[in-house]
Each structure stands twice: as C-alpha cells, then as structure tokens.
Amino acid sequence: MYEDSTIPRSSVTCTIMGQVTEGLDVVKEIAANGLKSSGTSSNDGTPKDPVTIDSFTLN
C-alpha cells in the first residue's frame, strides 16, 4: 500500500507491519513506476516492476 488506502475487512490477506521512517524516496520511486493491477483505490495494487525487500529493521 502507498499513501491512504482502504482495506476491506472481508479481503484482508496481508498484515500491515509498520511504516517507512527512512527511504521514503525508494517507496515513491516504486509508486511512480505504476501498478500492474488495481486494488481498492487508485493507490492500491501490485507494483508494475518486481520489488524485493532484502532486509529491514524492526524497533
């Protein structure tokens, strides 16, 4: 998800685990590349290009 998105309770298949506190420029670049398919809002869907998270820090 990117920006404000609505998640219908009946179709929740993922867990929201936090927010980006650093590297938002990378998130914006991924979003600027567009979506493969639409979700529940204009900001929802699968990224057009594959995205791999190599690591993250949980505080």
Score class of each variant (00 low, 15 high):
Met1Thr: 03
Tyr2His: 10
Tyr2Ile: 07
Glu3Tyr: 03
Glu3Met: 12
Asp4Leu: 07
Asp4Ala: 09
Asp4Thr: 12
Asp4Phe: 05
Ser5Val: 10
Thr6Gly: 05
Thr6Ser: 05
Thr6Ile: 06
Thr6Leu: 09
Ile7Arg: 00
Ile7Phe: 09
Ile7Pro: 01
Ile7Met: 09
Ile7Val: 14
Pro8Ile: 02
Pro8Thr: 00
Pro8Met: 02
Pro8Asp: 12
Pro8Glu: 04
Arg9Phe: 08
Arg9Thr: 08
Arg9Leu: 11
Arg9Trp: 08
Ser11Glu: 08
Ser11Pro: 02
Val12Arg: 14
Val12Ala: 12
Val12Phe: 07
Val12Ser: 12
Thr13Arg: 14
Thr13Ser: 14
Cys14Asn: 05
Cys14His: 11
Cys14Ala: 09
Cys14Val: 06
Thr15Asn: 11
Thr15Arg: 12
Ile16Gly: 14
Ile16Trp: 10
Met17His: 10
Met17Arg: 10
Gly18Glu: 07
Gly18Cys: 11
Gln19Phe: 13
Gln19Tyr: 13
Gln19Asp: 12
Val20Arg: 04
Val20Glu: 07
Thr21Asp: 12
Thr21Gln: 11
Glu22Ser: 13
Glu22Met: 11
Glu22Gln: 14
Glu22His: 08
Gly23Cys: 13
Gly23Leu: 13
Asp25Asn: 15
Asp25Trp: 09
Asp25Tyr: 10
Val26Leu: 11
Val26Trp: 03
Val26Arg: 15
Val26Asp: 13
Val27Tyr: 10
Lys28Ser: 14
Lys28Pro: 05
Lys28Phe: 06
Glu29Ser: 15
Glu29Asp: 14
Glu29Ala: 15
Ile30His: 01
Ile30Pro: 00
Ile30Ala: 03
Ala31Lys: 08
Ala31His: 14
Ala31Cys: 11
Ala31Ser: 15
Ala32Thr: 08
Ala32Gly: 09
Ala32Lys: 15
Asn33Tyr: 09
Asn33Pro: 03
Asn33Gln: 15
Gly34Asn: 06
Gly34His: 01
Gly34Glu: 07
Gly34Pro: 01
Leu35Asp: 05
Leu35Thr: 02
Lys36Gly: 06
Lys36Ile: 01
Lys36Cys: 04
Ser37Gly: 06
Ser37Asp: 11
Ser37Arg: 03
Ser38Thr: 03
Ser38Met: 10
Ser38Trp: 06
Ser38His: 09
Thr40Asp: 13
Thr40His: 12
Ser41Asn: 14
Ser42Trp: 00
Ser42Ile: 09
Ser42Met: 10
Asn43Val: 01
Asn43Ile: 01
Asn43Pro: 03
Asp44Leu: 02
Gly45Asp: 02
Gly45Ser: 01
Gly45Met: 00
Gly45Ile: 00
Gly45Lys: 01
Thr46Ala: 03
Thr46Trp: 02
Pro47Glu: 00
Pro47Ser: 00
Pro47Val: 02
Pro47Phe: 01
Pro47Gln: 00
Lys48Glu: 05
Lys48Ala: 08
Lys48Met: 04
Asp49Tyr: 07
Asp49His: 04
Asp49Met: 04
Asp49Cys: 02
Pro50Lys: 01
Val51Asp: 10
Val51Pro: 07
Val51Ala: 03
Thr52His: 05
Thr52Val: 08
Ile53Leu: 11
Asp54Gly: 05
Asp54Glu: 12
Asp54Pro: 01
Asp54Arg: 07
Asp54Phe: 02
Ser55Trp: 12
Ser55Thr: 09
Ser55Phe: 11
Phe56Met: 15
Thr57Gln: 13
Thr57Cys: 06
Thr57Lys: 15
Leu58Thr: 12
Leu58Asp: 13
Asn59Gln: 09
Asn59Cys: 04
Asn59Ile: 05
